[in-house]
Design a protein around this nucleic acid. Structure first.
Lengths: 248, 248
DNA sequence: TTAATAGTGTCTTTCAGACAATATTAT
DNA sequence: ATAATATTGTCTGAAAGACACTATTAA
């Protein structure tokens, strides 16, 4: 039997029913706090509960499915703003019983975005909203665990990648970048040391030569503007303030 | 309609056929070289090609599926040696067309093991063997890409986790640990500095108080023995010798 | 004017990496 | 005896963190 013959006779229907979904942990920063995009489920199971945006995978790559779900749920459709969203695979979740309907394996994605508008009312995304991560209560399915994994991934990646630049606008100040670190790590960073450190890492940021039109609300010099550099990893890394040695 | 009624009416059969598999990148070190466990495919598609061990997920958690496949393919069955194998999820691969039969989403796992015996001839695992990673040619499906991702993950995790201890026996010498780093990173490490560094990281290794019965083949003092400590991450990390700054 | 911020300079401590030295053991 | 290895010590340079200082701007 040749491979062609084999494929012709192959019956895909003989497998037990099983579905693959993507779920997206979309993070953004608003007012110095990390927010996650959540939807309110209208249908069973978990009707009325909040959940991560997501859905069944169609005839498309997994990444494409994640970006499509994100576009649908934010109501941003084909808005250009979505192009700036950084998207990466987080991990997969497939315990039997995590979905009461059937066996569902979910491939979770992590999205980082500059502050995005509220989902448009009246659209598909009517039930979607940005929620501060420390005010997220119980979630449908195992989504709380997925969110926790996503946050931990984000905290870790800030250390050794220029990920923070995905949370700010195209042009940004060092202070804005510092605010991203402070929000994700949940601790203040020393302004002077942070400033020097960021500029010393090759390729992290590059100067635009411009200066912000206006200083902060409480005064101070007009800060210089930067854009993301071409580095894909930070050397040396920007490590979190020494977690007690107990972190082991 | 209550949730119970909804579930009773739910028909899982209405979804397009789609399968979920696990594939395992099992790594070990033999004679100072990283080896990966490969099987020879007997059936279409890719009959006769080498591939990562793996198979369809049954009614079990994904991790269990990976461990089961590994046990079957190594022929180690319920051997205790498998308990010492470190297993973690790598990532998922689901491009349409990656399997010519149907849409298949594969959840890849990464396994690290101390030197394991050759798969038993005559068992299910007859076609399995340990292959040096730099002698792996073409692989079935997208397995070459999965292997590459697994190796990169291993290289990175050696830096900030005690993963290297998963590649050596329960009791080991500092030189054996160094050999793991050298094999995975593909470069020699300074013996003196490595020795001091390993002992200085809290919780990386702990002394057994014993000394090896015998020194190396080419002489030298009898080295002290250590076992893995209780640290789950290394602080400070054991960074790779400065890759040219160009790594960006 | 006041208070807050941007940006830079200095100092101390820690750590990586180069190199050296000594003791120990297989051949 | 010879050569290789284990282990410890020393030195230098990079980098992190604490602290201080100046200039600038909103209110």
């Amino acid at each position: 039997m040749t491979e062609a013959e084999f494929l012709a006779r192959y019956d895909p229907g003989e497998f037990p029913p099983l579905a693959v979904t993507v779920d997206v942990v979309a993070l953004t920063i608003r007012a110095g706090r990390v927010h996650v995009l959540l939807v309110e489920r209208g249908a069973h199971p978990f009707a009325g509960w909040r959940a991560l945006p997501g859905g069944f995978v169609r005839d498309e790559p997994l990444d494409a499915a994640a970006r499509r779900e994100l576009a649908e749920e934010t109501g941003l459709g084909d808005d250009r703003a979505l192009d700036r969203v950084h998207l990466e695979q987080l991990r997969s979740y497939g315990d039997p019983g995590r979905d009461p309907r059937m066996r569902v394996v979910s491939v979770a994605y992590l999205a980082f975005a500059p502050s995005l508008p509220d989902p448009r009312a009246g659209s598909d995304a009517a039930g979607a909203s940005w929620v501060p991560v420390d005010e997220v209560g119980e979630l449908a399915f195992d989504h709380a665990a997925i969110l926790a994994d996503g946050l931990e991934r984000a905290r870790a990646k800030l250390e050794y990648t220029p990920l923070a630049t995905a949370f700010v606008a195209e042009e940004f100040t060092i202070a804005e970048l510092r605010a991203v670190y402070a929000a994700v790590w949940g601790e203040e960073l020393h302004p002077g040391n942070f400033h020097r450190k960021v500029l010393s890492v090759p390729g992290f940021v590059e100067s635009t030569g411009e200066t912000a039109a206006r200083a902060g609300e409480r005064g101070g010099p007009k800060p210089k503007l930067y854009r993301a550099g071409d580095a894909r990893s930070l050397h040396p890394a920007l490590l979190r303030p020494t977690r007690e040695d107990g972190v082991r």
